[in-house]
Design a protein around this nucleic acid. Structure first.
Lengths: 113, 113
DNA sequence: TTGACATATTCCGATATAGGCATATAATCT
DNA sequence: AGATTATATGCCTATATCGGAATATGTCAA
């Protein structure tokens, strides 16, 4: 078995560096495929394929305008990352809090002597 | 060419679901390999291999205690994700701001008539 | 030292991926 | 309709990855 399908979850979609580059370039706003091809130095099929993956996980949206396709970010789909990170922040904070309590405790005991 | 090496960056390391599970189980604190094997339903070599990857990108730390290895989270390494997400949040906020200005502008013009 | 336990590593096969190139589809223009 | 532009897809190969089983390494105990 190889890795979990890249289209199955957002984490895999974003694991690919070029896909992150594509997302980056879309921060500026909606762009046509050709524009992206020009911005980054990628082949057109390469960009189309990556956009397909990003599309399938919902990270980008596509809008047809004449013969071009305008792609744009769908930042709501970054929520899984937020949630994921939040878990660790929370856990880390709690650990730091416990550490803090512990230190305060130590200090109190020290002062009592 | 296949995907960028999993050990090269944190994004690839985390793309694997089981590795995320391992990180999750480490939120509770330092754990031995065997404990992780018990917690999740993975084989011991599988866990060891995943821990190796996580180790190589610095997401976990290892400490030897007798014949076991205690692994723990290294949450500082989540910084790349924070930075990455921050970029999009910022971009999104700015876009919302511009949209806001635009709407305010429209409204002002409407009131003038 | 021998044996039991804990973890890491190696070898293997199956599979998915990424990229290149050619080509198909689709829309616009003359 | 035919030509041109814009994008998507299909086929192919090389490669990395995952998981499994066996085995190596390392550590403690008797």
């Amino acid at each position: 078995m190889a890795r979990t399908s890249t289209t199955s979850d957002v984490f895999n979609a974003v694991a690919e560096g070029r896909r992150r580059e594509i997302l980056d370039t879309l921060i500026a706003g909606e762009k046509a495929v050709g524009t992206i091809v020009g911005d980054l130095s990628l082949s057109q099929p390469q960009v189309s394929k990556h956009l397909r993956v990003l599309s399938e996980v919902g990270l980008v949206r596509c809008r047809a305008e004449g013969r071009r396709r305008l792609y744009s970010l769908e930042p709501a789909r970054l929520q899984p990352f937020h949630d994921w990170l939040a878990k660790y922040e929370q856990a880390l904070d709690e650990r730091l809090d416990r550490m803090d309590d512990y230190l305060t405790d130590l200090q109190r005991k020290g002062e009592q002597q």
